[in-house]
Every structure is written in structure tokens, then in C-alpha cells.
Design a protein around this nucleic acid. Sequence first.
DNA 1: CACCAGGGTGGTT
DNA 2: AACCACCATGGT
Length: 212
Amino acid sequence: MIAFRKLYEQLHNSYGPQHWWPADDRFEVMLGAILVQRTTWPNVEAAIALLRQQDLLVAERLAQSSLEVLEQCVRGTGFYRAKARRIQLLAGFVAESGGVSALAELPTSDLREQLLAQEGVGPETADAILLYMFDRPVVVIDTYLRRFSARLLGREVPPSDRVLNALVSEEIHETADLNEFHALVVAHGKSTCGARPQCGSCVVRVACASAA
DNA sequence: CACCAGGGTGGTT
DNA sequence: AACCACCATGGT
């Protein structure tokens, strides 16, 4: 009934505050959201550091820099040709939209639609940007949450993303809580416990028992 | 050496 | 709508 609220509380008790999103400014959040796809955060940090070294953490400059330089900066994050192209296109989008502050004026639904129209920005990346860059109260659904949602809900088949979004939205409303919730889900997923489908004593099972 | 990492895209059934 | 191959480097 209140499965995800219980999960949130258990995760928070186990792992504590996560202090997401690690970034110096809002544009950097956007770049990280693309660069972190299917890789680990340390790789992203290294790439961001290289971009900063080239003074490219500004939308206008990033949009006009050479693609070859970008590829060298982000190489360590994997899929580097696609990612270099995508952060450059994204920088152009931000610049032509009037900057981050102008985008921040848009309603969440419009902003989400525009983000999804960008190459390399799918549902998860768009929602992560909405939550961590623009402080909008949205649910970020990642592979970790999908992985144990069926067990948490006591169902055989895992719920669709649409259903999952509705269920979490009912139980967690505040931007600050949605922020922390997703960070904690990832923190747990990265732990040795979260990586296994069947874990006897992890917080997901504890939350499951508490919610029943 | 095999497998995975904070997805997304384009094509096929 | 569900499935697939592909993108590609870095760490266990």
C-alpha cells in the first residue's frame, strides 16, 4: 500500500543523505546526465574535468568547439562519438533557447517535451534533468528501481514504467524527497545487495515486509 | 576472460 | 508494443 514510502525510509536509514546531483552548476548537471549513460560516475567526473580544463563547461563555447576535442574529453565514458555529438547538440539547444535561466521559466510538461526532442535524451535522462537540474517534482525510473519493484509490490510481473511512475508519485511528492529517493535507489543498486535479484536480508526485502 | 555500468536509437517481428 | 543489435571505454 505504501511500499515506496517504506522503501524510501529504509533506504534513507541504511545509506543516509546522498547529496545529489554532484555538479558545480546546472548546465553541468545536463552534461553529466548524458555522459553517465551506461557507465560509472568516476568516468563522468574525469570527462567533466577534461572539459573544464578546455574551458568548455559553458553552453556557448561547447556548442562551437571542435568535435574532435570533445571526443577526446569524453572518450573514457564509452560511446564517446555519440556522446560528444549529443552534448554539443544539447549545448546548442540551451544557447538558442536563451540559456538555462530561460528554460527554467517553462512549465514542466513543455520542458520535458523539449528535452525528449533532443538526440540522446530519453525518458530517464529527461526526468533526471527535470529533477536535478530544474528542481521539478518528477519520478526518475531507472533499471535498479525496475529490478526490484515487482517483488516490492508483491507481484509476479514487474509493473510498466507508466504504472510505476503513478505508484511512486502517489507516495512521494516533494522535490527534495524525489531527489533523495532516486539517489538512494541508485546507491542501493550499486551495492552488492542490490545487484542480486534475490537477496535475503537487504533493505528492499525489509521494506517489502514493512509495507505488507 | 567474461561481465557489467545511474540509456538511447534505429530496425525488425 | 515487444524485441533486438548496436554504440565503446573502464573497472572487477
